[in-house]
Each structure stands twice: as structure tokens, then as C-alpha cells.
Nucleic acid binder design. Structure first.
Lengths: 141, 141
DNA sequence: TTTCATAAATGTAATGATTACAAAATTAAA
DNA sequence: TTTAATTTTGTAATCATTACATTTATGAAA
């Protein structure tokens, strides 16, 4: 749980003017590592900020992304999800229950062929499969 | 360049009845490793098959994917792309020119933490950055 | 060949996420 | 306070995808 002042300071450090909406949106992302969609963020915060517009959520999240405060995680086909975690991790999507799991991997050991003289800014490892819980559920049937 | 008979046989092997549309769509994917969108496939083939419907392209590509003949590559935020290559490779997206590059990586060395007892079906490595050509273009400015 | 049943393809309409845009509200500066 | 700039808001437009009903093609049986 980060307090508002810290959040405000982090926004400023990223060259983002800390408006109330921006603070609340960033706070939500920091306190909810659930790779939320725009709609999820909007619905949760609309309770606290009744005047909140979905366009604001879209604009704000895009702004955060451009300032490298959060990452755009391309897990689902049809919607953007965001992730505010700053440690390197991969995403596992269970194709049965739809849940998304974080996992760690040895990213330092990764070697690439074909990307000489390319600038690598963001690496994502995405795995699809069946999660433990679904796997066990399937066994019992 | 695969010939029609081979393509037909491959479809049958995947339990897919080889209709003319399906053959042409699969042929296009095999001969064009460009991670095409549905729209790209549709537009190219509409010239050869004037009656082709975009819905058919959607349905067919989904069918191919369900039968593990092709893969759904989640490179862009807003559209599905497909890949018929069967060797393991990653995708690099240049955030400047938008081009997508394939690259090889040492996938056998990848180790995961947090996915014990999970079934891993498909692993994707996606990198965003600046390609060599754009990097050099930027230098000269 | 004709008939019938099934599968595949087609076209249109609906959905839903995202974006464009202009107006309203807020903030900062003068 | 006045003014300008920034941020937020709401509505309308866009565009990829899907739903669905109709038409067409295919294949087997008579």
C-alpha cells in the first residue's frame, strides 16, 4: 500500500503532472497486480470518482505507458492490459479458465540470433497452456 | 512453394476437409511468412477468389489454429496475426517503422519458476525496440 | 441421376474495444 | 481577476471481430 504522496512523487519523477485522476489510477495499478483492462480500472475507480470518464482512463494509461511507468501487456487477443510491476517476469495464460499467472524466468540467459544492432527495449515471454488447478479438475472427470 | 496436393494432404492430416478456400488460405500462409492479419489474407486472396467472404477467412484461420496448423501471434494490440512457420522463433517489433522481424533464441535454456504442474502448450517471446535500419536512419539526422 | 442430409461459405447486422474530437472544467500564470 | 494552457469529460465515429441466417457445395443413399 503506497501512500498518495509517494505516488504523486513518482508521477512527478516521470514528468507527469499528478492530477487526482492520475494519482488514483496509478494507485490502483500499484495495489492490484491483476493486469487489469481499461474497463476494469474504469469500473473500480468510477465508484470513488463518479465523474470519471473512460476516455480519461484510456488517455492516462497511454500517458503512463509513454513515460515508461507501466507496461502494456498483450495477453488477450482483443483487449489491452496493463502491468505496473517493475521486476521482469513472464505471463502464463490458462486457455481453459482464462486466468493469467506471473512467473519468473532466467532472462539473463536468453540469447538472440538475428537482432544484431537492434535496440531492445522490452522483452515479453508469454506462455499459453493449462494451469495446475484446471489440470487437476480435468483429471477428476 | 508447396504444390496444392501437398497442402491438401497436410490439411487432411490435421483432420480438416480440404475445400478450395482452405487450400488457398493455407497456401498463402505457407508462402508468405509475413504474420498477416485477417484483412491481409482476405485482400490478397479476394483477387483470386472473387466470391471469398471475410467471414470465411476468419472461420478458416480459427479452424487452422484449433487444429494446431498455425499459430496466433499477438504482436499488435488491435489485431490478430497468424504464423504458419513451424520452427520455434521469437518476434521483434520495431516501434518506429512497425515492421516485424523473426529471430531465433535458445529456447531450450529457458527455465521457469512458478509454473510447476502447469501444462505449457505454446511459448512466445516478443521484443519491442528499434530495428537496425531505423537506428541508422536516426543517427544521420 | 435425383434426393436428401450435412458441411462449408457467404453477407449482413451486431458487438465491443478503442479513438477522435469538441466542449467543459480545472489549474497555473500573469 | 483575467487569460492561457492543460486536463477531463461525453458523445460520436472507427474498426476488428463475431453472430447468425441464408445460400451454396459436397457426398451418400436410393
Amino acid at each position: 500500500m503506497k501512500i498518495i504522496q509517494n505516488i504523486s512523487a513518482e508521477l512527478l519523477k516521470a514528468d507527469i503532472k499528478p492530477s487526482w485522476q492520475r494519482i488514483k489510477i496509478y494507485e490502483f495499478l500499484l495495489n492490484n497486480n491483476i493486469h487489469p483492462t481499461v474497463d476494469t480500472v474504469y469500473k473500480k475507480l468510477a465508484k470513488e470518482i463518479p465523474t470519471l470518464s473512460k476516455t480519461t482512463v484510456y488517455n492516462t494509461l497511454k500517458l503512463f505507458e509513454e513515460h515508461h511507468l507501466i507496461k502494456n501487456v498483450n495477453i488477450e487477443e482483443n483487449e489491452i492490459r496493463y502491468d505496473a510491476q517493475n521486476h521482469i517476469h513472464g505471463h502464463f495464460k490458462c486457455t481453459q479458465c482464462g486466468k493469467i499467472f506471473d512467473f519468473k524466468y532466467n532472462y539473463k540467459d536468453l540469447k538472440y540470433k538475428g537482432l544484431d544492432d537492434f535496440i531492445l527495449n522490452q522483452t515479453d515471454v508469454m506462455i499459453k497452456g493449462i494451469c495446475k488447478s484446471c489440470k487437476e479438475k480435468n483429471k477428476s472427470n
